[in-house]
Amino acid sequence: MKAAEDSIVTTAVDEFLAWGKEHSLFYLLFATACCGIELMQTGGPRYDVDRLGMIPRATPRQSDLMIVAGTITHKMASRVRTLWEQMTEPRWVVSMGSCANSGGPFSKWSYSVLNGVDKYIPVDVYIPGCPPRPEALIDGVMALRERVRRYRTLGIRDRDPYVVAGHEAPFGSHPGKEREATR
């Protein structure tokens, strides 16, 4: 009788799901430029993000988190969007490095670089740096985990609406707004 009591844990299903998600953020191995090397080194032996339950996945279908590491050009942008659409919900996006945030060192002069990946996909966390150190990336992921913890799969979601800076999204209405409407 005693043993049975001890082995029962009562919790809200939602909290349980959020707890699970928070501790197993699989990320998409998606590196375009220099920041990708730092992303690799973050997964490497010294910083070892595996200990946070973050395991790189090669396909978007298996990943919860997309770390946009590096410059996104106009030619690449629609592919990024496709990748993001292929991820299963709930999905999160971390924009790593100045290039993904705003175009970084290329924003002023380049004709082919997109000024921020948030023109195409909604971004949850921005990490500044060129490139950000692995510590900064881990810090950004910790901020994201805060967000994941508050995510409710079944109940009322207290997730901030997507904040998209700058221009209108190019593909009709913005994906964030669409999702808000379906909640």
């Binding site: 590096g70 410059t71 050009t73 030619k75 690449m76 290329f106 002069w109 380049s110």
Partner: peptide, 14 residues
């Protein structure tokens, strides 16, 4: 070309 960042053009501007 998915990462063409126009570095050669930037060279003419800086």
């Amino acid at each position: 070309g998915y990462l063409h960042r126009a570095i050669e053009k930037i060279g003419e501007c800086v």
